[in-house]
C-alpha cells in the first residue's frame, strides 16, 4: 500500500526540499511507496486542498520552516490535524532556524529595518495588503504542536531524509544519534592550547588536524553528529547548523561552557574574540534558547 505524504513549507528557504530532490535517481526507490497529496514547493496545491482532507488522512506530514506569520501558524496546526506522523523537517522546524535570531529584536524594529531602512530599498513602505500578519516572535514549532519525529539539519542531508522516510515506511523506530560532529570528524584531535581565535579566512589551515585545536571556532563538539561532519572534513569549521547534541538544552550555553574551559586566554580577550556571540553560538537554534524564551515572556508580560 502506498503511503500518503504531504510536505508543507512555513517560513524557510525551502532548502530541505532541495535536499530531498538531491536524491536524484535515488528518489525512484522511494517514490513508488509514496503518494504525494500536498507539496506546494513543486505543484500548485492550495491550502483549501489540505483543508478538504479528512483528519489524520495523511500518513506522513513533513513540516519545513518556522512560524513567522499567522498563516504559518495556521498551516502548522492544519498539518498536525491532518497527519498521523508529523515530522519536523529541518532545523527551522525543530529549533526555529536562522530566522529565530530575529528574536533579539522587537517586531517593529525588524519591520522598520527590513522594509524602511534596508540599503536596497528605494520605495520604503510597509506592505499591508494581501500579506499575512507577522507574529511577534519565532517560537520553535515543537512548542506549538506535537511532533512525532525530529529531523534536524540545515538542510538534513539527502541520506538523513531517506533514512527517516525508510524508517517510517517500514514502521521501524527512528532515533537521532547520541554522538557529536567531532565523533564523525576524521581529523586528528590533540590537547587543546588555544591562545587566539581566527576567522575562517585567516591563516592557513592544516587539513590533517582538528580545526578547533588550530583556533578556528568549529562547533562540532556541541552539535549533533547527524551530518557526517561534512563541513570540517573539507576544512570548513562547523557552524552548529544541525542544532545541539541530544539532551543539551541550550546550544549556546554549552558552547560558552566549553570555550571557557579550553581557551588559554584572559577572560576579556576571550570575550573580545566574538563580536556577535549569539550569531556565532546559536546560529540556527536561538528561538529554542533560554534567552529567547525569557525575551518571549518579557514581551508577553509587556502586553
Amino acid at each position: 500500500m502506498t503511503k500518503r505524504i504531504a510536505m508543507a513549507q512555513l517560513t524557510s528557504c525551502w532548502g530541505c526540499d532541495q535536499s530531498l530532490l538531491d536524491l536524484h535517481l535515488g528518489l525512484l526507490e522511494v517514490l513508488p511507496e509514496l503518494e504525494i497529496v500536498f507539496w506546494p514547493a513543486v505543484v500548485d496545491f492550495k491550502i483549501k486542498d489540505l483543508e478538504s482532507m479528512p483528519d489524520e488522512s495523511i500518513h506522513i506530514g513533513l513540516v519545513e520552516g518556522s512560524c513567522r506569520t499567522e498563516d504559518d501558524v495556521r498551516l502548522l496546526n492544519l498539518m498536525r490535524a491532518k497527519s498521523k506522523i508529523l515530522v519536523a523537517w529541518g532545523v527551522c522546524s525543530c529549533y526555529g532556524g536562522i530566522q529565530g535570531l530575529a528574536n533579539q529584536w522587537e517586531l517593529d524594529e525588524l519591520v522598520d529595518r527590513k522594509f524602511m531602512k534596508a540599503d536596497t530599498v528605494t520605495d520604503p513602505r510597509i506592505p499591508s495588503e494581501n500579506v499575512p500578519a507577522f507574529v511577534p516572535q519565532v517560537r520553535p514549532n515543537v512548542d506549538v504542536v506535537k511532533f512525532n519525529i525530529l529531523l534536524p539539519g540545515c538542510p538534513p542531508t539527502s541520506k538523513n531524509i531517506v533514512e527517516a522516510l525508510a524508517a517510517i515506511l517500514t514502521g521501524k523506530p527512528f532515533d537521532l544519534p547520541e554522538k557529536s560532529v567531532c565523533d564523525q570528524c576524521p581529523k586528528v584531535k590533540q590537547d587543546k592550547h588555544i591562545t587566539k581565535f581566527h576567522r575562517s579566512h585567516e591563516g592557513r589551515i592544516d587539513p590533517s588536524k582538528c580545526l578547533l585545536d588550530q583556533g578556528y571556532l568549529c562547533l562540532g563538539f556541541a552539535t549533533i553528529g547527524f551530518c557526517g561532519a561534512i563541513c570540517p572534513t573539507v576544512n570548513s569549521p562547523c557552524k552548529g547548523c544541525f542544532g545541539p547534541v541530544l539532551r543539551v538544552k541550550d546550544h549556546g550555553a554549552k558552547i560558552v561552557s566549553a570555550l571557557g574551559a579550553i581557551a588559554e586566554m584572559e577572560p576579556e580577550q576571550l570575550k573580545d574574540s566574538f563580536p556577535d556571540p549569539i550569531g556565532s553560538f546559536y546560529f540556527t537554534d536561538y528561538a529554542a534558547s533560554y534567552l529567547s524564551r525569557m525575551r518571549d515572556k518579557a514581551r508577553s508580560k509587556k502586553k
Binding site: V256, S257, G260, A261, F274, P277, M294
Partner: peptide
C-alpha cells in the same frame, strides 16, 4: 578560572540578548 572565562562570555551573550 574556567568559570571566570565562561562568565565573561555569558555576560556578553546576556547583554546582546537584551538583558
Amino acid at each position: 578560572l574556567k568559570m571566570k572565562s565562561r562568565f565573561a562570555l555569558l555576560q556578553k551573550v546576556l547583554e546582546e540578548a537584551g538583558f
